[in-house]
């Protein structure tokens, strides 16, 4: 689907229940993509700071959210393993 078409359909407010449920699934999808991208970035050797910059949040925020959620086999320097 072309991007403008996606935007029109996702922003369609004529059926709010369908729209709200779609947004809820979309949120889950976005969170899942974000987690996978953070893991990929750490595997590629990016630092928490670089990941935070790319996401537009603080380093503390991204570390707090993902430090314990990522694949524990990823070797992250100074990651809290408790």
């Amino acid at each position: 689907m072309e991007q403008p078409e996606v935007a029109v359909a996702a922003g369609d407010t004529s059926d709010p229940l369908t729209g709200l449920r779609a947004v809820s699934s979309l949120r889950v999808l976005v969170e899942s993509y974000e987690l996978r991208q953070v893991e990929a970035a750490l595997r590629a050797g990016m630092s928490w700071q670089e990941i935070a910059d790319a996401l537009g949040v603080t380093r503390q925020a991204v570390h707090k959210k993902y430090a314990r959620r990522i694949d524990p086999t990823i070797a992250v320097p100074r990651r809290n393993r408790t």
Partner: peptide, 13 residues
């Protein structure tokens, strides 16, 4: 269910 909801909103996933 997730795929159907997204498809109804026009988002391919």
């Amino acid at each position: 269910v997730h795929a159907d909801r997204l498809a109804r909103a026009g988002v391919p996933a």
